[in-house]
Design a protein around this nucleic acid. Sequence first.
DNA 1: AAATGTGTCAACCGCGCGCTC
DNA 2: CGAGCGCGCGGTTGACACATT
Length: 469
Amino acid sequence: MVSHGGRGGISNNSGEGGGLHMVLKKGPWTAAEDAVLLEYVKRHGEGNWNAVQKNTSLQRCGKSCRLRWANHLRPFLKKGPFTPEEEKTIIDLHAKIGNKWARMATQLPGRTDNEIKNYWNTRLKRRQRAGLPVYPVELLQQYNHRHHLKTLQNIPLSPSCSFASIISAAAAASSSTSHQNQYCCQNQSSVNFMKNCTPLDLLDYTPYRDNMNPSNSFSLPRQVINNGMTSGNGFSYQNGQLFHQALSGKSLSFDNLGLNSGPDPVSSSATNIDPVGLFGMGTGNNELSSIQNTVQTSNNSVYTGSDDVMGVASSEGDEEYDKVARGNSGLLGDLLEESQTIKRHKDNSEKNIKAADDQVSADTFFKDVNTNGLSNSTGSAFISGMNDKKDEAIEEMNIMDEDLLRLLDCPSPVCIPDWYDVGSSNNSNYSSREPSNVTIAHVPNIKPDDDDDWDEDICCWTNMPRVLS
DNA sequence: AAATGTGTCAACCGCGCGCTC
DNA sequence: CGAGCGCGCGGTTGACACATT
């Protein structure tokens, strides 16, 4: 792909301000250019970057000058790799404020937002490739209360999603009701319910399967079904598909629910919201990171997820693995070691993969739905039964500390369902994912009858895609 | 040794915000 | 009040170096 105007070379000044049709240079800066800029700032101070081009021989736009100064020329810049302390700071800050690179930079003297951003993206890629959660377990423990924390530990966290952004996206999508062709959910109630959700509500996924065509199934947040899909607000269930009257007959999917923010077809106002972190990889392309959940194992069997999805941590007594898993610091250095260990366990993992053991209870629900149609009560009955135990955790989690209570105002990380990065293990080409209508259920491993297991040590590794070499 | 994959860095872009007129 | 402008932020991309196959 050709870069925007190309990197290097020259281009017209089509950017902000000025209106000059000066030919501006792009690409790497030369030492001479640096010297000119340095001299200018020395004389005139920072700011008024567009004046640089006017008052010097530099043929660079103001933006470029500002960037060069901020990232390279400004005094007291710290170069070199991040120290472990800095890494911890970044991870912690990211957990608290999300992708606010500039704000993070203020906490890391001498570091630039660009550096931090690059570091984070690299780290993110590595951890996702390795099937590791974005945040270390220790950090989760600061946000998730007490003993029920364990139920969350096997859910990898979103790289950038914040609860606030989800709500914003939904609101943005729903607010553009004037356009006839909006695919997003136009029913305000489906947005309102989200405002009443806790982050955990959004984690609480309910399998939804089309028995006529199992490949057409998906999982939806419990709150969506409980509160969003009632016949009274336009939803209907026909031929194994969910429909909404406002969606022009299109079957329901995450993006037309307004839960995903692909620039198109959802309203453009939501394009810089990043709930993609919740529903898939936020690559910025218009490919909807699908909620596809099928995981192809190396032997081509399909499984829908369970505590043993990874198959790597299930071998009891595997001290080496346990050690690494517990030492999940989230730092890059540690990650390398973690990845190595995972790799060593790859072979063992193959045989431990098994199908989800909660399929039976899910089947019950689907039969009921297919027989009686989807109704609030049907869904609620099933879900309430299925989630009795989990609700306890939710209740517990709803007693949140102040950090979590500020979620609506201050972006915070939101856990994402375990199908989040499904496919990364054997499909690194995210853009190849099918759009949202191709959705295959990942049935959460909810074990209502197995309270003990639920509370047992669930290592964060146990629900991750395997690392394939 | 060549091909491919991955990580890092540096730069560009679009967008939004705040200020001024 | 709206347009124009300057600026900053976050997302994305390309080049290059290095590692792996």
